[in-house]
Design a binder for these strands. Sequence first.
DNA 1: GTCTATACTCAGATAGAC
DNA 2: GTCTATCTGAGTATAGAC
Lengths: 195, 195
Amino acid sequence: MDSRQLLVDTMSELMWERGYADTSPRHVRERSGVGQGSMYHHFPTKRDLALAALERNVQDLLPATSELDGQGDPMTRIEAYLMRPRAALKGCKVGRMTQDPQVREDPVLLAPVARAFAQVHDSWVRVLREAVAAGQLRADLDTERLAHTLMAVLQGGYVLAIAQQDPGPFDDARAGALDLLRAAAPSHQNTGRTA
Amino acid sequence: MDSRQLLVDTMSELMWERGYADTSPRHVRERSGVGQGSMYHHFPTKRDLALAALERNVQDLLPATSELDGQGDPMTRIEAYLMRPRAALKGCKVGRMTQDPQVREDPVLLAPVARAFAQVHDSWVRVLREAVAAGQLRADLDTERLAHTLMAVLQGGYVLAIAQQDPGPFDDARAGALDLLRAAAPSHQNTGRTA
DNA sequence: GTCTATACTCAGATAGAC
DNA sequence: GTCTATCTGAGTATAGAC
């Protein structure tokens, strides 16, 4: 593999594990095995490398979204996306960036994060609308809001899990969200087209 | 004010703003005006100061919980706690610590965070049980889970808000959670004692 | 493209005088 | 308790040869 790609891959891992501020060029060199000269040849500054790595991490996140965007029963897709296996104790490689002081103060580094979340939000809104249309969710629910609520459950679940060093709270949080969604079915249970 | 307290207050602020790893002794000295000698007299290492500051930040968080623990209508208390004014773009001064690499790897620094969240979880469970008992929530909901869900909504809401540099997603997330709770009232609306 | 050498600042302290 | 001086290593590069 070429040095450039190796650097990006390594930085991506480190940014997931340690964030940006606390990852040094030395860390990257030691883990990747790429020398000083190569590193600064490909990426003039740490920030340039971080930007490439972050864009890669954002790309990693989007395939999962296909679970929301797919065909078939909306509620089933919602459950599949919410409950998909996730490394609760590692946290979200994109969401984590919002807590890094040097990322949050840097509009260029924050931009890919904002874009990624906006895209996930869109997918959520679409599937939630379909669930309403299919009579699986009450029509008086605000789908834009609810999309943020469900994204927050996942992002916050990571925080709780890391605090306790236990995936339990993460799993509880998402299971509880699903319970609530099911409880928010329309009163006269119609699973087909609505009236 | 004495130097010791000034150091703790300053470190508390900085840990909220920048986290632990990216806050240096120099930052603390410059903002607090306390000299090098005093600083290392009171706190032999940066970590010692951080621990004191973190414990202070945890204490700051708990008074808000009284809103959950109070008397009166459970659902009203839930709404009051969820909707209380919060600095969405600053994030949670306790939850933030879970994303700091040097905190998350240090059991001593992580412990106060875990304790604080466990305590908030307890308060949530209590008020949710009361809401079930009062007929405001379906009795088949798992209150332990749901408590984690609602905590996650707040913690994750901060992440979304910071990503967009806009409090909107935070407010959406919590309002959406409240919508869901209301939609999860028992089918035959009884607001009094249950049968 | 990659290597080695060099440089300058900051982090995170320690030492000893007052 | 507070001050100033000093120290070692790490962070973040730059320079120039191969």
